[in-house]
C-alpha cells in the first residue's frame, strides 16, 4: 500500500491529470452558472505536509469559506473547496448581483449560492475522477462553514490523519472575461486505500 509521500513521478502525473481535467470541468460548469466566459491557468497539483499546505493557501488565520463533501462509492475520501474572499466576491457579484464586503455580512441567500458553487466545483473533480477510471463516485450533500482557513483545512487532514502526513492540494486561477483573476483552491483526499485502488485502475501503480 503506497502512501501520498511515496508516489513516483508517473503516479503523481496521473493525479495531476485528474486535477487538470477536474479544473477544466469546473471552469466550464462555473461559466455556465454565471453566464460568462471563464478561463483557467495551468493547474498545480501538489502533495504537501499539513503545515506546508496551510502556508501554501495563504496562512492559517485568514477568514475563508469552505464547502466540504465526502466521496462515497468505489472511491472514498473527502473534498474541500476553499472559497477565499476574492472568489466569494466574484461569485456573489455574478450570480446574485450583490456586492461583498466581508464574511460577516453573508445572508442565507449568499450562503446557498456559495454552497451550490462549491458543490459544482466538487462534482467537477469527482466526475473527472470517475470519468477517467470508470468507477462510481458519489459526493455527499455538501457542508458549509466560514472561519479561519487553517481550522477549515484541518478537517480533511484530521479525517485521514491516522493514515497519512500529507494531503493533495489543487490550485489554479480562474480568469474571468473582465480579466479579473481569482484563485481557486481545493483539497482532494481519497483515503490511502482508494488512492492505491485508483492508481491501479489507471494502470500506473508501481508496487
Amino acid at each position: 500500500m503506497k502512501n501520498y509521500n511515496e508516489l513516483n513521478s508517473m503516479e503523481l502525473d496521473t493525479l495531476r491529470e485528474i486535477g487538470s481535467m477536474g479544473t477544466g470541468n469546473a471552469a466550464t460548469a462555473l461559466s455556465g452558472m454565471i453566464g460568462r466566459r471563464v478561463r483557467i491557468e495551468m493547474p498545480e497539483v501538489r502533495i504537501m505536509g499539513y503545515n506546508e499546505a496551510i502556508d501554501w493557501i495563504g496562512g492559517p488565520e485568514i477568514i475563508t469559506a469552505g464547502v466540504l463533501a465526502r466521496m462515497e462509492g468505489e472511491i472514498n475520501g473527502i473534498i474541500l473547496c476553499i472559497e477565499q474572499a476574492a472568489f466569494v466576491e466574484q461569485v456573489l457579484t455574478c450570480v446574485l448581483g450583490r456586492s461583498f464586503q466581508s464574511f460577516d455580512d453573508l445572508e442565507e441567500m449568499d450562503i446557498s449560492a456559495l454552497r451550490e458553487v462549491g458543490n459544482i466545483m466538487i462534482s467537477a473533480y469527482t466526475n473527472a475522477m470517475s470519468g477517467l477510471t470508470n468507477m462510481k463516485i458519489r459526493p455527499s450533500v455538501p457542508a458549509f462553514a466560514v472561519d479561519m482557513q487553517g481550522a477549515i483545512m484541518a478537517v480533511p487532514m484530521a479525517e485521514f490523519g491516522g493514515q497519512s502526513d500529507c494531503i493533495m492540494a489543487i490550485g489554479t486561477n480562474f480568469i474571468f472575461d473582465d480579466d479579473r483573476t481569482v484563485p481557486c483552491r481545493l483539497l482532494m483526499s481519497p483515503d490511502v486505500r482508494s488512492l492505491n485502488f485508483l492508481l491501479r485502475k489507471l494502470g500506473v501503480l508501481d508496487d
Binding site: G66, L68, S140, P142, A143, F144, A145, E159
Partner: peptide, 16 residues
C-alpha cells in the same frame, strides 16, 4: 476541539 462543519451527512467528521 470545535466542530467546524455543522451539517448532517458528514458522519464522524464532527466528532473528532
Amino acid at each position: 476541539g470545535a466542530r467546524m462543519f455543522d451539517t448532517p451527512g458528514c458522519g464522524s467528521l464532527g466528532n473528532i
